[in-house]
């Protein structure tokens, strides 16, 4: 987008208000947006934990046990608890926003948003159950 003409840009008498740095704290929906965006920090945070787990796994049983004990650090548990809430928020907002990005049409009519979002939740449930099953299966 090319900048606007000089006429509209440098008029001395017009009053302009600068957006405040804390604009996102002014309104609940803006704050919600900011929290949604910050959930990405905890997504990256989890990947770091996963990388540490893989690292420990590669070094042998003692290192892995050490890693498991490290996870019991109360500070880390609290951080993981907060992180869990954030990634949950990410998942829910992400699933709910997909129908907006994808206008799914069936027989010439647009499907209602609920119907587009619902499969997300079904897959989410199935994938989560599968992971729990794989990890908890005995023997």
């Amino acid at each position: 987008m090319k900048p606007s003409t000089a006429y509209s840009q440098y008029h001395p008498k017009w009053h302009r208000t600068r957006v405040s740095t804390l604009w996102w704290s002014r309104k609940w929906s803006y704050l919600k947006f900011m929290l949604r965006e910050l959930s990405s920090v905890f997504v990256a945070f989890y990947v770091v934990i996963l990388l540490l787990q893989l690292h420990a796994l590669g070094r042998g049983p003692e290192a892995y046990l050490e890693f498991q004990l490290w996870l019991q650090n109360p500070l880390l548990v609290v951080l993981n608890g907060i992180g869990f809430l954030f990634v949950l928020f990410h998942a829910v907002t992400w699933f709910n926003l997909t129908p907006k990005a994808m206008a799914v049409r069936l027989r010439g009519r647009r499907l209602p948003n609920v119907l587009v979002a619902a499969p997300n939740y079904a897959v989410w449930l199935a994938v989560s159950a599968l992971i729990v099953f794989l990890l908890m299966r005995q023997g």
């Binding site: 929906s29 803006y30 947006f33 965006e37 926003l97 907006k100 990005a101 994808m102 206008a103």
Partner: peptide, 23 residues
């Protein structure tokens, strides 16, 4: 656009610009 979604919330004509941008 970072998909704040407020444009769609405030639109008096239910145009849903946020949806249009993501599409």
């Amino acid at each position: 656009c970072t998909f704040v979604g407020e444009c769609t919330e405030v639109c008096p004509k239910n145009v849903d610009p946020a949806g249009a941008i993501q599409q």
